[in-house]
């Protein structure tokens, strides 16, 4: 029974950590969106900083992908499917 207990504990900790990761990614997503907004406004005035805007857009895509995947696995872990 010890093994079962340990697995469950491990699962619990993993779920908690995944949840923390989901939270961090969500906050990061919001932050990057807020960072993109002024640069988009800036894009109307000058195109000097468009590379930074593209960089942030790429970052947004990356964060979203990670966030979706982490969220998916968090749901799976917390339901005990995996």
């Amino acid at each position: 029974m010890a093994l079962d207990e340990t697995t469950r504990q491990v699962n619990k900790r993993a779920v908690a950590a995944l949840e923390a990761a989901v939270w961090g990614l969500r906050e990061a997503d919001v932050s990057v969106i807020k960072a993109v907004q002024p640069l988009e406004d800036l894009s109307n005035v000058t195109n000097a900083h468009d590379p930074a805007l593209e960089e942030l857009n790429a970052l947004t895509v990356r964060i979203r992908a990670a966030r979706e995947e982490v969220r998916r696995r968090w749901i799976a872990e917390s339901e005990g499917e995996r």
Binding site: A21, W23, G24, S31, V45, L56
Partner: peptide
């Protein structure tokens, strides 16, 4: 205007970086 926009963007990007650091640490825990 350019400086204001860049300041806002830099500040929020740094906050995002910090949040991603927390997410990465959480993934380390995982």
């Amino acid at each position: 205007r350019v400086i204001e926009a860049l300041e806002t963007a830099a500040r929020t990007a740094e906050r995002g970086t910090d949040q991603l650091r927390q997410a990465a640490m959480a993934m380390d825990a995982v």
